[in-house]
Computed example of a mutant assay.
Amino acid sequence: MHLVTVLALEPVVGYDMHIPQQIFTTARRDGERLYDVRICGVDNRPVRVGAGYTAVLDHGPEALDCADTVIIPGTMVNGPRHHGTLPADIAAALARIPSHARVMSICTGAFVLAAAGLLDGRRATTHWAYADDFRALYPKVELDENVLFVDDGDVLTSAGLAAGVDLCLHVVRGDHGSEAANVAARHCVVPPWRDGGQSQFIDRPLAATRDGSTAATRAWALQHLAEPLDLATLAAHATMSPRTFSRRFREETGLPPHTWLTRQRVLHARHLLESTDLPVDRVAAESGLGSAASLRHHLNASIGVAPLAYRRTFAAGARSGKLNAPQTPR
Rank of each mutant, 00 (worst) to 15 (best):
L143K: 09
R270S: 01
G196Q: 09
F201M: 08
Y310R: 06
A315W: 14
W128V: 08
R296H: 12
D152Y: 05
T26C: 13
P326I: 01
R204A: 10
S302N: 07
P191I: 14
A309Y: 04
E286W: 02
E252Q: 15
N182G: 00
H82Y: 13
A325H: 14
A219V: 12
H176A: 04
P279A: 09
K322P: 04
V266A: 11
T125G: 00
H127L: 10
A163G: 01
E62C: 00
Q200M: 12
T126P: 01
G160F: 09
D30C: 06
M240C: 01
R263A: 06
N78F: 06
L119K: 08
A232G: 01
I97Y: 02
V183E: 14
A285H: 12
Y53I: 04
A63Q: 02
A181P: 02
G31L: 11
P191R: 14
R38I: 02
L278K: 12
L278N: 04
A216C: 09
G160E: 06
R319T: 10
T214H: 03
L295V: 11
A235I: 07
A226C: 09
A51F: 15
A325G: 05
D120R: 11
L143A: 07
T276R: 14
R173C: 06
L169H: 09
W128T: 05
S158E: 09
A51P: 04
V47H: 10
V47W: 10
I72E: 05
L272H: 03
D154C: 07
K322R: 14
V165I: 15
H2R: 11
H268T: 10
S302V: 13
D203H: 12
R210Y: 04
V42P: 05
C168E: 10
I39L: 12
T259G: 01
T214G: 03
T262P: 05
E252I: 05
A215V: 13
I106N: 04
A159P: 02
D281M: 12
L278T: 08
A309S: 11
E10R: 10
V183F: 03
V37Q: 09
A163E: 07
A226E: 14
A110D: 03
F134C: 14
L3K: 15
L255A: 06
A284C: 10
C40N: 03
G197F: 00
R204F: 01
I39A: 01
T85H: 07
G52K: 13
E274K: 03
T25V: 06
T75M: 07
R270T: 04
T259L: 12
T313R: 14
W128M: 06
H298W: 15
L267C: 05
L137W: 09
P329V: 08
A162D: 13
Q327N: 11
V165P: 00
P98I: 13
T239H: 11
K140A: 13
A238I: 08
V47T: 11
H59S: 13
L143C: 05
D203K: 07
T54V: 15
P80R: 09
